[in-house]
Design a protein around this nucleic acid. Structure first.
Lengths: 195, 195
DNA sequence: ACGCTTACCGAGCAACCGGTAGGTTTAGTC
DNA sequence: GACTAAACCTACCGGTTGCTCGGTAAGCGT
């Protein structure tokens, strides 16, 4: 009763539905994304969708899991931290995945409301991401950054920059250069780095 | 016929409704905030509300205008830029206005979706706020910040920090120290400043 | 006193929402 | 080839949504 056993074909279908949900959320937000709209985009009926995800919230969980799997790739990003250069690479990659960035920015926004089903996800995610960023900064500079900040102090700033830049970028995707802005932030962290 | 002429009493009532709308949006987002819920909180019927705002979108415009009026106070923040210390003060003030911060963070999130009525507002707001922040930074340090960045390069970063920190704070209001994080950012801008 | 505007409210409506009930068809297993 | 479970669909339901229609009552300038 917990969940349905899916065949290989079933798994593929589930994936298509998640992809359709991501697109729909990017266009209308989670609250505005009706099951019917997602289903249509995935090429089946609303009830067909409900066969794979037993409720709308269940579908959202599917989306969140998809994100978790694809962006960590199963690795522990705290124990094996990324380099700062790799982080810059993530920002550059995001600049080519507008729909996905849009989806998770909307979700982040909606999640600050009282009872939103993604609230818990984002709270935990922030903790994890800040830890990972702390590890990255420590890997790069040790216990003191060039500016004198500790990695613990700088990590929330780096995370905030990534989130905040996305909103500015999403509002003017053609004219706002998100990777360049992040590069400027890295120069702020280390003025000695080559411009 | 563009809008209804309101008496002094009518204006006060409109204000109450806007305030109720802000609270409701903080709790459920714009899409989740039904006119009925806003009306109930304001102490009248949904139809009574519709007498003051002819549509839901019209109500949102009212909320956006309220924000514009209260946070600039009618002054031109580009021509008369704030000091950095005053900006720090804004962050501290925000830490005591959780509902309002929540409201506009949700709205910012929702506004990145396709046809959201607040999209245009936020696009213009970003341009204006970046300009104002550029002016603030130039007022503080001239054409080169201590880190070597130009005010134009640093302004989007400062704006991103303010937005981004709000999301982290809203997810853990008791344990995340937003003003302290912003102070750390200021130290990043000028390592010579007293810690 | 009269007329006009403002300030509401009750009833109702078409569209849409997420979800259920109950089926039928398809695919895989023994 | 029988059986089972997965993969769907049609029909439907109660609730909510934003909004219109058509009022009524109170204030106010003349």
């Amino acid at each position: 009763m917990p969940s349905i056993q899916h065949s290989a074909r079933g798994h593929a279908r589930r994936d298509e539905i998640v992809r359709a949900a991501i697109e729909t959320i990017a266009e209308r937000g989670y609250r505005g994304a009706s099951l019917a709209a997602v289903a249509e985009k995935a090429g089946l009926s609303q009830q067909g969708l409900l066969h794979y995800f037993r409720s709308k919230e269940d579908l959202l969980i599917g989306v969140l899991q998809w994100r978790h799997e694809t962006d960590t790739g199963g690795r522990d990003i705290v124990a094996e931290p990324m380099s700062l250069a790799a982080t810059q690479g993530v920002v550059e990659a995001n600049a080519h995945r507008e729909a996905i960035v849009r989806t998770f920015s909307v979700l982040l926004g909606e999640s600050v409301t009282g009872d939103h089903p993604a609230a818990e996800y984002f709270r935990l995610r922030y903790r994890r991401v800040r830890e990972a960023m702390t590890a990255t900064l420590r890997l790069e500079w040790g216990d003191r950054l060039p500016s004198g900040l500790t990695p613990e102090e700088a990590a929330p700033l780096a995370v905030a920059i990534m989130d905040g830049l996305q909103f500015q970028w999403l509002h003017e995707p053609e004219s706002f250069d998100m990777p360049a802005a992040f590069r400027a932030f890295v120069r702020l962290l280390d003025p000695k780095a080559a411009p």
